[in-house]
Design a binder for these strands. Sequence first.
DNA 1: AGTCTTACTGAGAATAGTTATCAATAGACT
DNA 2: AGTCTATTGATAACTATTCTCAGTAAGACT
Lengths: 140, 140
Amino acid sequence: MSVKVDLTMVKTRSTQQRVAILQILEGTDEFRSAQEIHKLLEQKKLKVGLATVYRTLQKMAVQEDIDAIRSAHGEIIYRKCGQKEGHHHHLICRQCGITITVDGPTIENWTEKIAKENGFREVSHTLDIFGICKNCYRKA
Amino acid sequence: MSVKVDLTMVKTRSTQQRVAILQILEGTDEFRSAQEIHKLLEQKKLKVGLATVYRTLQKMAVQEDIDAIRSAHGEIIYRKCGQKEGHHHHLICRQCGITITVDGPTIENWTEKIAKENGFREVSHTLDIFGICKNCYRKA
DNA sequence: AGTCTTACTGAGAATAGTTATCAATAGACT
DNA sequence: AGTCTATTGATAACTATTCTCAGTAAGACT
Ligand SMILES: [Zn+2]
Ligand SMILES: [Zn+2]
Ligand SMILES: [Zn+2]
Ligand SMILES: [Zn+2]
């Protein structure tokens, strides 16, 4: 009898630190880095260790409570996504950061197919589309 | 906040180091990081300083001799311009990390379509598929 | 070929973002 | 209250990249 490990199943405790970080994320639509969130918490007189901020955001991203992408500058930035339900993807402007939520069966089916063809199970995927939006292109 | 210098205006000398780095890039269609290129040069018994590799690649990218993108892992990776044949995606086992390279027109077309529908230009994308490979699943 | 200018180089220090370590703490459950 | 263990905080370690600066070598011009 073997135990199946599923990261989304591990018990997550509701700590003061986790709640504080979540509140920051819920207070904006923008992507925020771990460092930024740590500073914002300091301003609110909430002392949360930097390592805790990193760990919590990382875990939230794995459990799909928040979205994580890599900025052009190299930092991982996080956002509580407006669309709370359902798997989906993002179309992001490299210039101004405006983000459009997109989804559709095409990639979902394609990734499933590719994974199955290679004998993989418990499949998931990440996909982000980047470009220059109409507005920014006009200004350039 | 850093001061931006226009590197395209300064004279570029053809040094042994620059030639060696260019040869590495011309020897493959894949994206390579500065660290990887530095190791490859070592294997060819060419001693080129790591800082020089970083500086040279950075300058080549600014002068648009090569393409530079940020990998999901956070590194800047470089490729000799032109053909997009090197573009592909990864199917990664969450357990053992084994990685399979995959590609196909399906997602390429889909992402292009989605971006165009939303008025985006200069489109790029990132996609990774995760799962449990046959081997690891059997062991579990 | 010799000389001059200055872009370029290498080694290491410095920086930025992130992850690992580990003893102490505090949720959750009986 | 007591137990179990996920979580925390301070800091060390790590990875990728940039900076510093004295020494080197393209390339231009005699
Ligand atoms: Zn989203
Ligand atoms: Zn834009
Ligand atoms: Zn595996
Ligand atoms: Zn693609």
